[in-house]
């Protein structure tokens, strides 16, 4: 009885994980620009991996394996935002962002300001 319940739980967790992969892929396919694709691509994976790892733990029915699964997820938590931030920053800076999709952009003013300042500094350097 207990075994059957745990088996069902394992299957549900696996299906959840697979659905999170599907969420990432559909988002990748349908979202209009790089940064919105990034939301779909990197984030559902965090929950997806958690569900897969939980499925493994439930299926093994042992506590000894739990620490290594937790470590695996913690490493994922630590590294996933790093790549997301780097790719997002590169995307913003290399103008892969479609500005027409943005309803507001607080960073734009700052960037414009910095650009004019850099241009002025460049002018001064070249006139010397």
């Amino acid at each position: 009885m207990m075994d059957a319940a745990l088996d069902v739980l394992t299957m549900v967790l696996l299906l959840g994980g697979a659905l999170m992969s599907l969420a990432a892929a559909v988002g990748l396919l349908r979202f209009p620009d790089l940064l919105s694709r990034m939301h779909a691509a990197t984030k559902p994976q965090v929950l997806g991996l958690l569900l897969f790892l939980m499925a493994i733990a439930v299926e093994q029915r042992s506590w000894a394996i739990v620490p290594v699964l937790i470590i695996c997820w913690i490493f994922q938590l630590l590294t996933a935002p790093v790549s997301a931030h780097m790719v997002g920053r590169a995307g913003y800076r290399t103008k892969h962002l479609r500005k027409d999709l943005l309803s507001m952009d607080d960073l734009d003013d700052v960037v414009q300001h910095a650009a004019t300042r850099r241009r002025e500094a460049g002018d001064r350097a070249s006139s010397d």
Partner: peptide
């Protein structure tokens, strides 16, 4: 762009992990 591709490869890696 190349960034889209690298993102998609990351997702592919996660799917293989799954």
């Amino acid at each position: 762009s190349i960034l889209d591709r690298v993102l998609a490869v990351d997702v592919l890696l996660a799917i293989v992990g799954g």
